[in-house]
């Protein structure tokens, strides 16, 4: 941990230096910063997800996962960027060694804490990353190494063997918890979340998620990708606990689901 913090600080300094000296894009200078998880996929994925924008490893972006993925199709992870404050534009999460790396892109907005928990699939032991874009245009990257026996992405969904989902697709079970001036939503959605990597089962996954307040305004906006687990479970913390909320989901087949929480 200490090492990561050190390199994060170093990165910030390098970034600051480069901005001062030339005003050029920071990405080039950041390559000096070694990946604390030492992954051969880091540079490749960074270019895909962060492009040419300035970035830094930042211990304030916490990604937590169990030490070992007991069930690689249902791995609980939490991304917490609370330490960065509220000036957050978006959050992207990915798993380096998944055949489909992208897990989600999230636009937290002002009415939700920058903390989310959900379950994902992993194909093998992999770094799980979260990159948080703050409004000053810098990506802050955190991550954790997840150990796993693997196979989560190319195993057929249980929905493939059991037609239960066909008559319960998009059903939502939800709970609301009060906690210290905020309100926590946890919900589970019935959906196979097929990756398209299993023979003869096309990809079929929830693609958009919105949590809307009573005025219909989205307080949570998230794009999802096939590594999100089957029958996914999400936890969000709302800053403003009053009022009713509505969950809206759409999958890549154009099915839309709406549920009052």
């Amino acid at each position: 941990m200490a090492k990561r913090t050190m390199s994060a600080v170093l990165g910030t300094m390098l970034l600051a230096a480069s901005l001062l000296s030339s005003g050029a894009t920071g990405a080039a200078t950041n390559t000096a910063q070694a990946d604390p998880l030492n992954s051969p996929m880091w540079d490749y994925n960074r270019q895909i997800f962060l492009g040419q924008m300035p970035w830094q490893f930042d211990a304030r972006v916490q990604v937590s996962a169990p030490p070992f993925a007991e069930d690689p199709t249902q791995v609980p992870i939490t991304v917490d960027a609370s330490a960065l404050g509220s000036e957050i534009d978006k959050v992207i999460a990915w798993a380096d060694f998944n055949p489909i790396q992208h897990i989600f892109t999230w636009y937290p907005g002002d009415k939700v804490k920058p903390r989310v928990s959900l379950r994902i699939k992993v194909q093998q032991a992999t770094p799980v990353r979260a990159a948080v874009l703050t409004r000053d245009g810098v990506w802050h990257v955190g991550g954790v190494q997840l150990e796993a026996a693997g196979g989560g992405c190319t195993a057929p969904s249980t929905g493939n063997a059991d037609p239960y989902w066909e008559s319960h697709l998009g059903e939502v079970a939800s709970r609301r918890f009060g906690s210290e001036g905020s309100s926590r939503y946890r919900f589970k959605v019935i959906h196979p979340m097929d990756t398209g990597l299993v023979n003869n089962i096309p990809e079929f996954f929830l693609e958009q998620l919105e949590l809307r307040d009573s005025a219909g305004e989205a307080v949570v906006k998230m794009q999802l990708y096939p590594p999100v687990s089957e029958n996914p479970v999400f936890t969000f913390d709302l800053s403003n606990s009053t009022g009713q909320h509505q969950l809206w989901l759409r999958d890549n087949s154009g099915n839309e689901f709406e549920q009052a929480l």
Binding site: F49, G51, H102, G196, E203, E207, Q208, Q223, Y225, N252
Partner: peptide
């Protein structure tokens, strides 16, 4: 949908 389905992960619009 494949090929163009997953881009670099920005808003679908």
């Amino acid at each position: 949908m494949s090929k163009f389905g997953r881009g670099t992960g920005f808003a679908i619009t």
